[in-house]
Design a protein around this nucleic acid. Structure first.
Lengths: 99, 99
DNA sequence: CTTTCATATGAACATTTAATCATATGTTTA
DNA sequence: TAAACATATGATTAAATGTTCATATGAAAG
C-alpha cells in the first residue's frame, strides 16, 4: 500500500463498494457472470431465486458499477463490468481457502 | 479466475469475509494498522471512537483472521494478519478512484 | 491483595438490508 | 393496438448490524 492518507469520503465510498461483495446472493450472481454474460431470467433460474430478488440485486450491482447491461430485444444482458470484480473475489477466496 | 465451481459453504464463507470490509470503521482500523501495529486505545483515540466500539470491531476482525494480537503487559497489540487484507482494500480503492 | 489501567463482553436500541408480493415499464408479436 | 413476455420498482417485513452503556476480565503497581 503506497499512499495511506484518504479522505472520509473515499473511505465511505470504499466501504460502500466492499459492502456489495458481502452478500452470498451477489457473490453467486457475480460468479455466474464470470462464467458467461447472462439475462436476468437465466440468473434467476440458475440460482433458484425469484426474478424480483435477482433484479433487485442486479440493480445494486449496477449502481456500484460492478456489472454493466446491454438490451437485446426483450431481454437485458448482464456482464461483469471490469477486472476489479474478479480480482476482489479471487483474493477473498484465497483468504477463505487458506484455512 | 481459474476454478469457477464452489460449494455453498465456500460462497457463504467468502461473503462473510467480504462483509467485514463493508464498514467504514473497520476499513479505518485496517488502514491505521497498515501504517503501524497499534493498541486498542491508540486506535480509539486516532479514530475518535469509544474504546468499546473499537474493541467490538477488532473482535470481528480477529474472528475473521484479518488481524492478529499479541499481549504486551496490560496492552494488546493489534496487527494486520496477512497480505490479503491490503490486497482487497487496494483493489477496492482502485475501483472507487477510477471514476 | 487491592487499586488501577487496558481491553473485552453482554444487553439494548436504532438503522440497514434482503426477500417477497404486487405492480409498473418497456419491448415484441399477433 | 392488444396481448405476451422480460425486467424493474415500490412498499412491507423480518433479520442482521453497529454503537452505546454498563460491567467483567485480566495484568501490573503500590
Amino acid at each position: 500500500m503506497k499512499d495511506l492518507k484518504f479522505t472520509d469520503e473515499t473511505i465511505e465510498d470504499l466501504a460502500s463498494l466492499l459492502k456489495i461483495f458481502g452478500d452470498a446472493t451477489r457473490i453467486r450472481i457475480l460468479l455466474c457472470l464470470s462464467k458467461r454474460d447472462s439475462y436476468v431470467g437465466e440468473l434467476a433460474e440458475q440460482l433458484g431465486m425469484t426474478q424480483s430478488a435477482v433484479s433487485h440485486q442486479l440493480s445494486v450491482l449496477k449502481q456500484s458499477k460492478l456489472v454493466k447491461t446491454q438490451r437485446q430485444g426483450k431481454n437485458i444482458l448482464y456482464a461483469i463490468a471490469d477486472d476489479h470484480v474478479s480480482s476482489i473475489i479471487e483474493t477473498g477466496l484465497e483468504h477463505v481457502m487458506e484455512d
